[in-house]
Structure formats: C-alpha cells, structure tokens
Design a protein around this nucleic acid. Sequence first.
DNA 1: TAGATTGTTAATCGATTAACAATC
DNA 2: TAGATTGTTAATCGATTAACAATC
Lengths: 222, 222
Amino acid sequence: MSAQKNRSSDSESGNSVPKAVVNRLSLYLRELQHAVNSGHETTSSSQLGNLLGFSDAQVRKDLAYFGQFGYPGIGYRCDELIAAIRKILGTDRQWHIAVVGVGNLGRALLGYKGFLQQGFELVAAFDVDRDRVGTKIEGVEIFHLDQLTEIAKKKNIKLAMIAVPAAAAQQVADRIADAHLEGVVNFAPVTISLPDHISQVGVDLAIELEQLAFSALKRARR
Amino acid sequence: MSAQKNRSSDSESGNSVPKAVVNRLSLYLRELQHAVNSGHETTSSSQLGNLLGFSDAQVRKDLAYFGQFGYPGIGYRCDELIAAIRKILGTDRQWHIAVVGVGNLGRALLGYKGFLQQGFELVAAFDVDRDRVGTKIEGVEIFHLDQLTEIAKKKNIKLAMIAVPAAAAQQVADRIADAHLEGVVNFAPVTISLPDHISQVGVDLAIELEQLAFSALKRARR
DNA sequence: TAGATTGTTAATCGATTAACAATC
DNA sequence: TAGATTGTTAATCGATTAACAATC
C-alpha cells in the first residue's frame, strides 16, 4: 500500500474516460474481491482478462487511465488494486441511496443485502401510497415522495433507484431533480429526462431479454 | 406493411452486427411504441435520435444493418418500423422464460407484468427449497431445479433469469447448460461461465451504482 | 541470470459522423 | 416545384490490440 503512494495520478487532466472502461473497472473489482476470497494474494492482467473474456492488453490499458498499480514481473497485489479501484469509483466511501416505489421490485431492492459491503447503503424509501408511508420494510422507513427533498438533505442521499410504473417515472425523475440528487438507476421501461448534472443508468428487463432473443435467433439462422 | 415487402434484407450475410446496435434497436422500439401510444403515425431518424440522445445519422446507420424501412422525405411509419424491429429482434414470436430462484428478486420478477406484450412469457419458476416447490406465485408454478431439463423441454423454455445468491449462480448456470437453454439474464453479482452457444447478459446492481458514483465524483472534481 | 509481467507507444480495427444524391 | 428525409459513402474519430523496452 505504501508502495502505491504517489504512483497513481492522472484523472485530474481532461482525459475523459470512456464509459466502457469504468464499467470494466467494476468487473475487475468484482473479480479481485472473488480472488481475495479464494485466498489469492496477487493476480495479473492476463488472469483478470481470461476470467472476463478481455485481452490482457485491455486490462492494462484500462488501468493506465488512472495510474500505475502493478509491479512488472509480478502482476497486481489484489488488496492494493481493490483499494485503488474503489478509490477511483468512489466506493471507498459510503453512498446513501433511496428507493422510490415500494412495489414488488422496490421491496426486492430493499431486501437486497449485497449493497453495504460495496459502499452503498439504503437509507430511505419513497412512495405515494399513504398506506405504505410511515411503515418500514427491511428496517428502512418509507416516506411520501413529497418529502424527498427534505429527507434527502437530512440523510445525505445522493443516489436513487426508480422502481415505479413507467407512467410515473418521469414525475419521479422531476422530484429527484428538485432534490438535487446526483445519480439514478431507472428500472422503469421508459426514457426519462434529467438535468445533465444527474447521471443515469437504465435497467430494462425487456431490453435485456430482447438482446438474448436476438442472439438466439442469430445462432438459429446460421 | 405491404410496402415493406422485399425491402428488408441483409442479416443473412456474414455482417455481424455490433452488440451496441442491437441494444439501440431495443431503445428505438421502446420509443416507437411510446410514439404510437401518443398517437403519432410517423417519426424520423432525427426525432428518434433526439429522444434518446443519438444523432440522426446513427439511427439511420443502425437500421441500415438490417434493411430499408423508411421513406425519403417522409420518415418512418411507426407501426411498420415496430413490426420490422420486432422481427429483427425475434420478439414477433413469444419466448418462454423461466425464473430460477424464488427469493425477493425472483418473486419481483414473477410479479412483473410488462413482459407479455413484449414477446416474453414467464412460464415456470425453479428453486431448491422443497417448501416452495409445488406452490405457485403470481400464477406461475414452482419446480425443483432438478426438473429444469424436463420442464424446459415440456414448456419450450428457451431463456432464463438467474435470481439466486452469488454462491449458487454457477451451479444454476451448469443446470441451464444441461437443459440446453439459449440465453440467460444473470442477476447474481458473479461472473458465470456458460457454453458459447448460450448468450448471457449480466445485471449487477452494485456495478450500476458504481458507475453512478464514479460520474458523481467526476463532476465533483471539476 | 532467466522468466514473467508491467506500462506505454504505434498500428489496427471498428464505430460514429458528416455530407449528399436519390426520393417522396 | 420546394422542402424534408432517407440510405449510403467517405472522412473522422475513438477504442482495441500487438509489440516491446523497462522492471522486478
């Protein structure tokens, strides 16, 4: 770890990093954590690449966007690289998240325990159903959507997951914009518009399945 | 529709289509359906692009991989383009899907009603918990994982969604391979390995959130 | 030292954009 | 006809890969 001092840098320069690179960084992190859990002390770009189906050159190039993390002849020390990637992604700190919409999916999200160790904590849920408001699910209190700005401020919530029906998603997005959150995962199967300063990631089940259908069909045609 | 006859083609040639193109096709489809629901008869590459943040050229180029679907000077007839994209993606037919793992997430998936109209139908769920097996959730029968091959054959199941804990995901993947399914959406936060002839899409909540954290941090640094 | 593996540069490959003739 | 918009080609841009000196 001390060997890492002053070796990483960049990232202040205007080197806008491609989205795909950041996504792969998350995959590297996942594999590294797996490797540590399996008792591995070090790994290499080719090992990491093999596990994920990327070339060794790509792994090294991706990391090179952010600094120097490896040891020529040795590879990468898993714990060091984990710490480095966490710092890059910003998950070396804890992010407070809200779930908006406490239907089937919202409840499933509230029950998901995998967040905490990854730097995320579900600290509030929101809904418009007065019967749900005031209750708790999985230990998380449910507030009315109208309280979003207030509670977000109080609880330092920066990210939200939208788990409401398609028809309600844009209204929720508008409230999220009002509350000045910084990022949104949108599970509703619609395009939502948000101000530029709020990032978004869309997860649409139907779209994922369509990709599979296409691939399956493509194979069948051959 | 008759005007479309013999105008689309390609796709038999070895023109392997980039994944990103197929993904955008799904987004176009979603917007087109939205447009139709809003009473629009036609649209254009620039309209579609604007809604999704792509250039008009990109929309046209993407569609050009598969044929000619528009009318110079007019644009695209929504209903025709919807039919064309559905055919390309393979969702002009019905795909039978299984959910494996009936925990919080699995149950949420079973409760999701948005599939049917998109060409997907949840026809079975699987779990290893003997207490759950034999019951129904949302009208879908739960079978033991050991019955996967048998039931998949009987019910013509081609796609599956893995909603089990990380530690069980690879075992499930192996059973899915045994059953010769054609595609998998993997919600477990691990890399699973599957034979080449089975497509997979990974959806990892933590990874999505990490992308948001990175973006938020990047803005903060500026 | 010999073997392994990094970080980085240059070469290759692929995807996006701009431009425009053809068309309605 | 004039205006709009397609499909497609060529030019640009960006991302991936190959190669290798530097390092342990």
